[in-house]
């Protein structure tokens, strides 16, 4: 069961989409996320943009075996966005994938909305309410354990931020998943190198990050988190090593896709004004193949 994005719906029966369609998917998610945070004067757009290509390949590229028509399908793959503050791109991705109407995105962070500023279960397609960091991987490990115990083919994908790895609870789960050989668990780190107060290197060094995962007993691969072919190649067949959980350290750029937001700490907090939104959308438009 491939995920059903607009692109895949057009190509009925296709197991995966072309690289171009995941690019389109990513561009649409970026544009919607920008409009959402602009309308809501919300923060965290940089965090949304850095992981958008990962989400586009997971949902738009047929990696995740999910079905928007049956969000509770027991054998579905689980996706947990542990960095729940990147909710704008998270919701936009689910809407683009067909889990709920696109119009809901207009209500992001509005009074009485279904869509609060951190990803919240109850919204179709959201598996876990997140927002406080360091929660996704332990819960994902429990889901992977349950799937194995039940003989289910479901796999569990958890997307974490780099700053989030400061939380000790992650390392408890990393030990646990390796000890129990949870080969149906995949952790993806959106390694954009910037956390709340500055660079990861300044605040709390993670390097050598891939070596840490390997030392803890995971199979770990480093990729360019904006290269759709590389993302698809890394995620299309898991586990990478039998008997081990899989970690993907995805090197990314905070604010990716909007020139004046790229690699800028300020866009962890700021919301674009009218002119900035227009410029950002224009830049995304230029990306379109002529």
């Amino acid at each position: 069961m491939a995920s059903v994005s607009k692109a895949t719906q057009k190509k009925a029966g296709a197991e995966t989409t072309t690289q171009r369609s995941t690019r389109e998917f990513a561009r649409d998610v970026r544009a919607r996320a920008l409009q959402m945070v602009h309308r809501a004067s919300a923060s965290h757009i940089g965090s949304s943009l850095s992981m958008t290509d990962l989400l586009a390949v997971l949902y738009g590229g047929g990696i995740l075996r999910v079905d928007p028509a049956r969000p509770d399908w027991p054998e579905r793959d689980r996706f947990i966005l542990s960095k729940g503050h990147a909710a704008a791109a998270g919701y936009a991705t689910l809407a683009e994938a067909g889990f709920f109407p696109i119009e809901w995105l207009d209500t992001y962070c509005q009074d009485g909305s279904k869509l609060p500023g951190h990803l919240t279960r109850g919204v179709p397609g959201v598996e876990l309410s997140t927002g406080s960091l360091g929660h996704g991987l332990p819960v994902g490990a429990g889901m992977a354990l349950a799937a194995r115990a039940d003989g289910s083919p479901a796999r569990v994908f958890v997307l974490l931020s780099d700053g989030e790895l400061d939380e000790g609870s992650n390392w408890e789960a990393i030990l646990f998943a390796a000890h129990h050989g949870l080969e149906n668990l995949v952790a993806i780190v959106d390694y954009n190198k910037i956390q709340s107060f500055g660079s990861v290197a300044e605040v709390m060094r993670l390097d050598p990050l891939a070596e840490k995962w390997r030392a803890f007993g995971w199979a770990c691969r480093e990729i360019d988190g904006h290269d759709h072919a590389a993302i698809a190649e890394a995620l299309s067949v898991v586990p990478h090593e039998p008997g081990k959980p899989t970690a993907i350290v995805a090197h990314t750029i905070k604010g990716k896709g909007v020139s004046f937001m790229e690699d800028q700490l300020a866009w962890h907090y700021k919301s674009p004004n009218d002119e900035q939104l227009a410029q950002a959308l224009a830049e995304l438009e230029q990306e379109k193949p002529q």
Binding site: G134, P138, A141, G142, A146, A147, E172, A173, F176
Partner: peptide, 20 residues
């Protein structure tokens, strides 16, 4: 499962099992 001396992970894993 004895999850080891790791209560935060114990609760997270329990939540994942309960969600399943």
């Amino acid at each position: 499962i004895n999850v080891g001396v790791a209560e935060q992970n114990m609760v997270g894993v329990a939540a994942g099992l309960a969600l399943s």
